[in-house]
Design a protein around this nucleic acid. Structure first.
Lengths: 226, 226
DNA sequence: CAAAAAAAATGATAATTATCATAATAATCG
DNA sequence: CGATTATTATGATAATTATCATTTTTTTTG
């Protein structure tokens, strides 16, 4: 069992507000495990018994709409927490989380989280701020999906991938999503997504090598996203 | 200065977690006032010095997108609080709030709210849950605006108005929004909105008398909204 | 490595929605 | 009350995006 003190999640998330004692306690009750690309961490409708900390890797937060189509609401990556909202509202998960690359994750039981919230004002406040940030993100997402064109949203999605995964030494995005997944981030048909990627390539804004994507002109992509 | 104890907002919002003493304190510092239809309560980018309680009337939460078009994210009505997120994250408002009918509102200074949050665990928890609910709402909104058709979203918007305003004795929606405002809820062009309203009227699902709208077949409207 | 399967790409077409123009109706104001 | 303005409505058309069909490329697997 590794200590939580040096963990990246503690540095980046609301867990930074925990005391040394609380971190020791956390280290004792947490459960650390590996998740393979494509595996489901939890599903829409699941009862949530705790919170997941992402130590390594990236997952997609997905919601299925009434037509059976997925929407990827967000990519969640190293240092972030998953499932807070469900714990706080004592309700089933409204979203699914699916690994888009191999992950290293810790599970913290609900009782522990609620205990920390009840006993540590700072932690409680940090959690609240975290939820507020998620709310702002969701609002922006909603606005973008209401009035931006598919091309603008595609540009945003690529910038989002760049932001959460970065690039490799050759400059390719460090996260390889399928066209279908990119379409689910954009909220469009897979074919439309493919066509627009080809258009961006033609314009010299990106380069495509099979599934790998390289952003050639970041500023132009940003101005496309408005 | 009226007491906060019997106020509808206290009954319906996180303020229900405040103690008697805290309510007395609240009654002393709060500022009660009237807002006319069309008036702005606060604007995107405003520094928020407190939270607004809605005692009476309805306002729209609005965000302007980069094309200068408004999106109405939500109707906020009697018993709800406004501006919590900005207070909690110490940031400027990301949204505007504009009265769509005459309103009665109270303003609670930021210091007071933060004091209650720091001293009253229950209140703090209620506030957090409130933000979580807003997050769930925003997520659903985003999904709907990503994959539902304009007609489906119009049906949803009408149900939303019904939900927040109810009907008068004749069965007409108690809130008269302009076609332009309905279009901003739906996220579509005003003309498209008008055309679809005419279509729903033709189908006998709603009735239109100038700006007044009556829902004739609630179940059909609900099934349209999916 | 070759065969099968899956994913990506492309073409053709249809459906949806936006935009521009203009007419009809309702609301406002001197 | 009549004139002006704003809102609602409708028509014509264009733009965007989705859908279906098919081909090509890539990946997987025996």
């Amino acid at each position: 069992m590794s200590k939580c003190e040096q963990c990246i999640v503690r540095e980046l998330s609301s867990l930074k507000a925990l005391s040394k004692n609380e971190l020791v306690q956390l280290a004792q009750c947490k459960d650390s495990f590996l998740i393979k690309k494509g595996d489901v961490i939890f599903n829409e409708g699941d009862v949530m018994n705790g919170v997941y900390c992402i130590k390594q890797g990236t997952c997609k937060l997905v919601k299925m709409n009434s037509n059976g189509k997925d929407t990827i609401l967000k990519l969640i990556t190293k240092g972030e927490l998953l499932g807070q909202t469900s714990i706080l509202t004592e309700s089933k998960s409204t979203l699914s989380a699916v690994a888009v690359e191999d992950m290293q994750v810790c599970f913290i039981p609900k009782s522990e989280i609620l205990g920390f919230i009840g006993n540590n004002k700072n932690f409680s406040f940090e959690v609240t701020k975290d939820v507020c940030q998620n709310l702002n993100y969701a609002t922006d997402f909603a606005i973008n999906h209401t009035h931006k064109t598919v091309k603008e949203r595609l540009a945003l999605a690529l910038l989002d991938v760049l932001d959460s995964a970065g690039t490799d030494t050759e400059g390719y995005l460090n996260l390889q999503l399928s066209r279908d997944e990119i379409a689910s981030m954009v909220g469009t048909a897979t074919e439309s997504c493919i066509r627009l990627l080809a258009e961006l390539k033609k314009l010299g804004i990106i380069d495509l090598k099979a599934k790998r994507i390289k952003i050639l002109k970041l500023n132009e992509l940003k101005s496309l996203a408005q």
